[in-house]
């Protein structure tokens, strides 16, 4: 089978250093929020159920 090669030249966006830093800060913020939510629900489970967490029927 003959292969035809087509070359496309696309213009892409070049992020500046400041923009890269912004993206990094946003990613870190999202990660911290997710970790915070997981921690909150984990602790809240113990606060609300107390000792019943350990003695639930499986």
């Amino acid at each position: 089978m003959a292969k035809s090669h087509k070359h496309f030249e696309l213009d892409a966006v070049t992020l500046t250093d400041e923009q890269k830093k912004i993206i990094r800060r946003r990613n870190v913020a999202i990660a911290l929020i997710l970790a915070g939510l997981a921690t909150i629900f984990f602790i809240a489970t113990f606060v609300q159920l107390g000792a019943n967490v350990a003695s639930r029927s499986l």
Binding site: K3, S4, H5, K6, H7, F8, E9, L10, A12, T14
Partner: peptide, 10 residues
């Protein structure tokens, strides 16, 4: 079938 090589040039 053809292969397409895409060059993204920033």
């Amino acid at each position: 079938m053809s292969d397409m090589n895409i060059d993204i040039n920033a």
